[in-house]
Design a protein around this nucleic acid. Structure first.
Lengths: 190, 190
DNA sequence: TGCAAAACGGAGAGCGTCTCCGTATAGTTC
DNA sequence: GAACTATACGGAGACGCTCTCCGTTTTGCA
């Protein structure tokens, strides 16, 4: 008769969506955001461009989906750094290192996420909140050991900047480490 | 009979080149690198796309020409910072501030130049050498006051990272200043 | 099995960088 | 000034990109 029920999600749609994200993750990780075209993702996932764009209206939104689960790692990284039995400076540095390494895990992510930090309209807004919250926890935990006046946004931007440089220039881990050491020492009250 | 002499530069070519650079500088400064198209520059300079591309084979090379004179300011900025009669930390901070402000003078320049720091094949290679040399002068002048092991590349990248974030997020001067203060303190020996 | 909601996919719009090549012009030689 | 050629001009268009429109196919409840 009349069509009453509204479908939840059609099986083929779910399958395609999953395959797209999976394929896109591999491509983005290997070649970076800009070097991967949407046509390329569509072909690799064996769907038409129209299908790809129905699931993800913009390339940015696809990237966001690729980075989805990955933001969850942040809070566990904070925990690990805070439970460390060491001076404040070392706990801070451990967190900064973990944070930077998560940002550089995907080529192009560091600059994008850091640029989105103050923009609530960005597709990455939710991830930014997670990051800011994590840095806030660090500030509250280390508290008096830190330079007065630092806030979560400042730390996020400083580390984001370092991560973006490391990412762009494809620097080795020790170059990143020495820059983060400078930042960590600068953040500790003198 | 036979044509012997080789022309130096034809007058119309020189005129067009100058007008292109002038127009492009205004456009890049106002809208940033990515937001300006080559067609737009060609139209504003009243030349055809072919002419534009003969003078500047890539968009990057046009950007390089726009930034030409500007790199000369660097050395005078170093001088000014070094002749300051103040503690090492203040002289360093003054230089970092000047450096960052030069990098953010043109939208999009900070990330580009910083990314080119280690790449001799980049169109910006000459400018990078100037920058690295300037930071080297700072290191030699402040010497023992600095954290052991810092080099010019490291400082260039740290400030470049901060400048890129400031540029991307269009942050006010005081946000930049507080980040640079962290970097400066981290660079001073504790 | 019938049927409508939902998803599919390809052609193509619109914009970007950059190229090719026929035409126009500057500047030298007589 | 006229002839002549190295040089510069500029527009049409190749190619690749993101993203859209819409006719066709598939899915799954009745």
């Amino acid at each position: 008769m009349v069509y009453r029920k509204v479908f939840s999600v059609r099986a083929d749609a779910q399958r395609n969506r999953d395959r797209i994200v999976e394929v896109a993750r591999a491509l983005f990780r290997a070649k970076g955001f800009e070097a991967v075209s949407m046509d390329e993702v569509a072909k690799a996932a064996e769907v038409g461009p129209g299908t790809l764009y129905r699931h993800f209206p913009t390339k940015e939104s696809l990237y966001d989906a690729v980075l989805e689960a990955w933001a969850e790692k942040v809070n566990t990284a904070v925990d690990r750094a805070l439970t460390l039995d060491a001076p404040a400076r070392d706990r801070l540095l451990k967190w900064l290192t973990a944070y930077a390494s998560m940002l550089t895990e995907h080529k192009g992510a560091a600059a994008r996420i850091t640029a989105a930090l103050g923009d609530p309209g960005s597709p990455f807004a939710a991830k930014c909140q997670t990051y800011l919250g994590a840095n806030q926890r660090i500030i509250e935990a280390l508290d008096s050991a830190l330079r007065p006046g630092v806030d979560a946004m400042q730390i996020s931007r400083l580390v984001g900047g370092v991560a973006a440089v490391v990412d762009n220039s494809e620097l080795p881990a020790d170059a990143a480490a020495s820059m983060l050491a400078v930042v960590a020492d600068g953040l500790i009250a003198s």
